[in-house]
Design a protein around this nucleic acid. Structure first.
Length: 572
RNA sequence: UGAGGCGUAGCCAAGCGGUAAGGCAGCGGCCUUUGGAGCCGCCAUUCCCAGGUUCGAAUCCUGGCGCCUCAGCCA
């Protein structure tokens, strides 16, 4: 089984790194980092970044750190740091002993700020946030210099120290870099470095009442860790001059290089933290690990595999153009991996009873069934067969449409691993007209699903023996959003109006082959002819099994039938 | 009317002056004890547009056009 089917082609970042290596930069070392802020759960977009950063380290004999960018205690929480560590590990990456927190550098960062003041490159500003905004200027007009810009070194040093000691109320003062208020790059117009916030930090507690800003903390954290290539997303491109400014004016020993790439966007999916957190907190979904969520926790619970996600990330590539990847790509790599690994089993989701009139009343046979045709080492198992069976309601049609080669009156089909059966009679409820059961006959000479006479039997059905069947609840999922772009809404509405009201369908009373009663969480199963499923590790109990649909099998018949109803095939 | 980016097929994406990789999707066929999987074939005479340089341009130059990001004491 190949570890990775899509060839890992190079990308512009790897090209840069190769070139740096050729030029002997950084003493031939490559050091990256994955720097999440612990203010939410990781999602598939983060997976792209994780695969990139850890993948580069792996490819160029380097190392990748896990560093929490925890400089804003107002939004952060240990719940998130725990989930992030779990998700990175699950995806298959290892930061070994290099687990870092920006908050571990608060003292060093403070000293760097003192240094900046001494260099005359930072000052304490008494302007309020509103005043700072009002004096920042606009995209086309320069800003105005703060009246506090020319405070003496001594005054700045004294004030900054007193900021730290808690002598000033929240928001009353800030430390600002002294750069250029008329820079065309707004990030360079004396950005705030430190703000006063009396908020308990999830790691440093109440030790600090001033907290550094991202723009300031990030380049210095990178330098402290000896990062060589600091990879981030496109929206930070405008921040790079500031990133470099800190490193250059503080003359740090190591000089990381920031490189930006386009973040992942997926059709039918929302990936902004703000929106994901809203879905969770407003109960549009059932928590961060709801199987419909694009979070790694959600995908894991849904039955996605780490390899599928990694292969997907490798396949979509890394570039600088904004892009929206069609979700079919992700689904393709999911099916590919699951096809290789999933144990084949039979489960009837919407049961229809079939009675084999010519099969002995009290007989039970044990039939052989392969566990995975893609992998002989998965072996075989025995499945019981008897006179009364369940088949799928959808596999019988009293009036079969053209091209339907499943069961219908007078027609013969194969029961997978078992026998040919022929439908002789349809028994209906006298009042409702609903189909109650089918009376069929079986061909004793077709055991195993084959005869010598060369008879052609097109349809193959899955089934479960009634007296041996187990029961389960099965949850089917559809896309969370109805439109490829969930943000495509009419004036005044928001993405939530595009939520799919039918994104989950709960089926109870599903019939499963007896062996499945021992299903293990984390094991992928293929319910034959239907799709891939896994035990829901949150809701399933030994008394009441609950399976999540991971992804359906490609359904060409469903597609054909849809086209037959809707008209021509080539119309969308 | 500021600055920084980006524009190659329906969607991603290689390509780095020598004549348009690959994946997804789609289409056609083969095969099939899963209408799954697999296999075979098709799918850009042209790279946002217009000029220019060159024997030769998606690649270099000039000028347009379009899209994205930035005016948090968020990251």
């Amino acid at each position: 089984m190949p570890e990775s089917n899509p060839p890992q082609s190079s990308d512009f970042i790897r090209e840069i790194i190769k070139q740096d290596l050729i030029e002997g930069k950084n003493n031939g070392k490559v050091m990256t980092r994955f720097p999440p802020e612990p203010n939410g759960y990781l999602h598939i977009g983060h997976a792209k970044s994780i695969c990139l950063n850890f993948g580069i380290a792996r490819d160029y004999n380097g190392l990748c750190n896990l560093r929490f960018d925890d400089t804003n205690p107002e939004k952060e929480d240990v719940e998130y740091v725990d989930s992030i560590m779990e998700d990175v590990k699950w995806l298959g990456f290892d930061w070994e002993n290099r687990l870092y927190f920006a908050s571990d550098y608060f003292e060093q960062l403070y000293q760097y700020a003192v240094e900046l003041i001494k260099l005359g490159k930072a000052y304490v500003c008494d302007l309020t946030p509103d005043e700072i905004r009002d004096t920042r200027g606009t995209l086309t007009e320069p800003g105005k210099e703060s009246p506090y810009r020319s405070r003496t070194l001594e005054e700045n040093l004294n004030l900054f120290q007193r900021m730290r000691q808690g002598e000033f109320p929240d928001g009353s003062k800030s430390l600002r870099a002294k750069i250029n208020m008329s820079s065309p790059n707004l990030n360079m117009r004396d950005p705030v470095l430190y703000r006063i916030r009396r908020v308990e930090h999830h790691r440093t507690g109440n030790k600090w009442c001033i907290y550094p800003m991202y723009d300031y903390a990030h380049p210095l954290s990178d330098a402290i860790e000896g990062i060589t290539h600091s990879i981030c997303t496109l929206e930070f491109e405008n921040h790079r001059p500031l990133y470099d400014w800190f490193l250059n004016t503080l003359k740090t020993n190591s000089c990381p290089r920031q490189i930006e790439f386009a973040r992942l966007n997926l059709t039918y999916t929302v990936l902004s933290k703000r929106r994901l957190i809203e879905l969770v907190q407003s109960n549009f979904v059932d928590g961060w690990d709801d199987p419909r969520m694009p979070t790694l926790a959600g995908l894991r619970r849904r039955g996605y595999t780490p390899l599928a996600i990694r292969n997907f990330c490798a396949a979509i590539g890394v570039a600088k153009s904004d892009s929206i990847v069609e979700i079919e790509n992700l689904e393709h790599y999911l099916r590919e991996d699951l096809n290789n690994k999933a144990l084949r089993v039979m489960a009837v989701l919407k049961p229809l009873k079939v009675i084999l009139d010519n099969y002995p009343e009290d007989k039970t046979e044990e039939l052989d069934a392969e566990n995975n045709p893609e992998d002989f080492s998965a072996g075989t198992r025995k499945i019981p067969f008897s006179r009364v069976l369940y088949i799928e309601q959808e596999d019988f049609r009293e009036a079969p449409p053209k091209g339907f080669f499943r069961l219908s009156p007078g027609k013969e089909v194969r029961l997978k691993h078992a026998y040919y059966i022929k439908c002789e009679k349809v028994i209906k409820d006298e009042k409702t007209g609903e189909i109650r059961e089918l009376r069929c006959t079986y061909d004793p000479n077709s055991r195993g699903g084959w005869t010598q006479d060369g008879r052609k039997v097109m349809g193959t059905l899955h089934w479960v023996s009634v007296p041996h069947a187990g029961e389960a609840e099965v949850r089917l999922y559809d896309r969370l959003f109805l439109k490829p772009d969930p943000n495509d809404v009419t004036e005044g509405q928001d993405y939530k109006t595009n939520l799919n009201p039918n994104s989950v369908k709960i089926l109870t009373g599903c019939k499963i082959e007896p062996g499945l009663m021992d299903a293990k969480p984390g094991t992928p199963y293929q319910f034959l002819r239907q799709g891939y499923f896994c035990l829901d590790y949150r809701c399933s109990t030994p008394e009441k099994l609950v399976f999540n649909q991971t992804i359906n099998l490609k359904d060409t018949w469903g597609k054909i039938e849809k086209f037959q109803k809707n008209g021509r095939k080539d119309q969308k």
